[in-house]
Design a protein around this nucleic acid. Structure first.
Length: 483
RNA sequence: CGGGGCGUAGCGCAGCCUGGUAGCGCGCUUGCUUCGGGAGCAAGAGGUCCCGGGUUCAAAUCCCGGCGCCCCGACCA
């Protein structure tokens, strides 16, 4: 009847595969409130690794962490015209508290530009107060119509950076610097090859001057935005009266940026690397990089093997590896292998009587390739190298897949349409810059311009004509259907 | 909000058409044997059949009305 042991394959139903993988790996669960999710320990551990590494990278650029409140006066939202238009429809509003109707409703933050802007206006007087580089790790709420675990939930966790600068050039430099930080993080840790670039007017952040984004291509050839970095210009500075006196004595509004990345990145990791057996977690993000499975028959063997396993784990941990010994009784080794594979653990070590006699252990990689017998001596060094190799392997494999799923410079509008309709990925083509054309392409193909890619991602010969209208192209654009 | 699907044990489902003792697989508990790729046997525990009305001697099953969830679309990180 129903086979409870295997999850739906990616080929059969990608969405079902994604959901079942999350349940099987115990990354998350549905909450009693529609659209919200519970992040379970296995999923939260991945988020903690993301946080720890991103946080360190932010701080290396001089950013400090702070915390701003969940509740924001409703009137704040309305102070920036585009901002309110963009966010008002999806904001949750608190109208009652303490058993009374509130004088002014409070919104639950969908993002914190407004409240941070209001505080910055108190804190900044002089060019000597600039730049002000802040970040906060928090939750935000956006009342989305349709939700998907990790990819889009009513409440989600993220970090939002907010900075203020003395000049437009400095703000632009900060915006691009953080885009580069995200890119490095996503390539080095998530092993997701992202394409960076500028967002079009229709896709930019509500209230920004310019938005830059990072896009990954998932295994179903749909694009996933994995982070954004906005140059806010003076929009919020003017709305919240954030001014400073320059060295020359003149008064000016500050130039702002904001940049964010979310728990959606976990969904990106799943859909980039996962296979039909479950999650494949890049080692640098894994809660457990190595799981040790002891193998034994008799009680005597059990005692000896467990002792050896614990000693091995201790030695490996001393070198910085995250190691778990699965010493549960009554579960056969094979069952443990399947369980840890489903959870995406990168490396498995089997240690049994034969290994004890030989001073070896059997190592298996989550990415395949069978088992290898390795000497216990020098094992930590081997594993550290294996981690590097696996990170690179995952990134390279994902990049190859992305390129294989991309179409550069279709010859005709029809080729463009056929490629998208046929389930293709990124299409690189010329665009005339007309928002009406962008909208029409979306209407016809459901594909949107993900980014106007940065130079290194563009195709050799720049397209001279718009793929849709034949008019002169103002830029090469990347189209795809997106999450 | 439009379209589709589904609510029965912790999970996955059958039973419903044709009303009559609530079942199967997995999981869980206990014991014995197993243990280098999802163990076997035995004995158990576990249910407001989504909710509310109606029809009937009798409703998981038929009728009416709700509610919830998932998937596809529009909005979006």
């Amino acid at each position: 009847m129903s086979d409870n042991k295997a999850i739906t394959t990616r080929a059969a139903d990608f969405s079902a595969w994604y959901n079942e993988l999350i349940m099987r790996a115990e990354l998350a669960d549905y909450s009693p409130v529609r659209g919200c999710m519970v992040i379970r320990p296995n999923g939260y551990a991945i988020w903690e690794q993301m946080q720890a590494n991103l946080d360190r990278m932010f701080k290396e650029t001089g950013v400090q962490n702070a915390y701003f409140p969940l509740f924001i006066p409703q009137s704040f939202l309305a102070k920036e015209a585009e901002h309110v238009e963009g966010f008002a429809p999806e904001v949750a509003v608190v109208t009652h508290a303490g058993g009374k109707l509130l004088d002014e409703p409070l919104i639950v933050r969908p993002t914190s530009e407004t409240i941070i802007g209001s505080m910055m206006s108190k804190w900044i007087q002089s060019y000597r107060d600039l730049p002000l580089l802040l970040n906060q790790w928090c939750n935000v709420v956006r009342w989305e119509l349709r939700t998907r675990l990790f990819l889009r939930t009513t409440e989600f966790l993220w970090q939002e950076g907010h900075t203020a600068h003395a000049s437009e050039a400095e703000a632009e430099a900060e915006t691009l610097q953080m885009l580069a930080v995200y890119r490095k993080f996503q390539e080095d840790f998530l092993a997701i090859p992202v394409v960076t670039g500028r967002k079009t007017e229709s896709e930019k952040f509500a209230g920004a001057l310019r938005t830059y984004g990072l896009e990954g291509l998932m295994q179903d050839n749909k694009a996933l935005q994995l982070g954004t970095s906005h140059n806010l210009g003076q929009n919020f500075a003017k709305a919240f009266d954030i001014t400073f006196q320059s060295a020359e004595g003149s008064m000016d509004h500050v130039w702002g940026t904001s940049w964010g990345s979310t728990t959606r990145m976990i969904g990106g990791v799943i859909m980039t690397h996962g296979d039909d057996n479950g999650l494949i977690c890049p080692p640098l993000l894994a809660q457990w990089q190595v799981v040790v499975v002891p193998i034994h028959k008799t009680d005597t063997e059990r005692a000896q093997v467990l002792e050896a396993a614990d000693r091995l784990a201790k030695d490996l941990r001393a070198t910085g590896l995250r190691v778990h010994v699965d010493s549960r009784e009554g579960i056969k080794p094979g069952a443990k292998y399947y369980e840890w594979e489903g959870r995406g653990v990168p490396f498995r070590l089997e240690i049994g009587p034969r290994d004890l006699a030989n001073g070896t252990t059997m190592m298996a990689r989550r990415t395949g390739g069978g088992k290898t017998s390795l000497p216990l001596a020098g094992l930590a060094d081997v594993l550290h190298r294996e981690i590097e190799t696996m990170q690179r392997f995952l990134l390279d494999a994902a990049r190859e897949r992305r390129e294989a799923g991309s179409l550069r410079h279709p010859k005709s509008k029809q080729e463009f349409i056929d490629f998208i309709e046929g389930g293709g990925g990124f299409v690189y083509a010329g665009w005339c810059g007309d928002p009406a054309v962008e909208a029409e392409i979306k209407e016809v193909t459901k594909a949107t311009i993900r980014v106007l890619p940065d130079a290194e991602f563009r195709t050799g010969d720049a397209p001279t004509r718009c793929i849709w209208t034949g008019r002169e192209a103002v830029a090469e654009a990347i189209w795809a259907r997106a999450y």
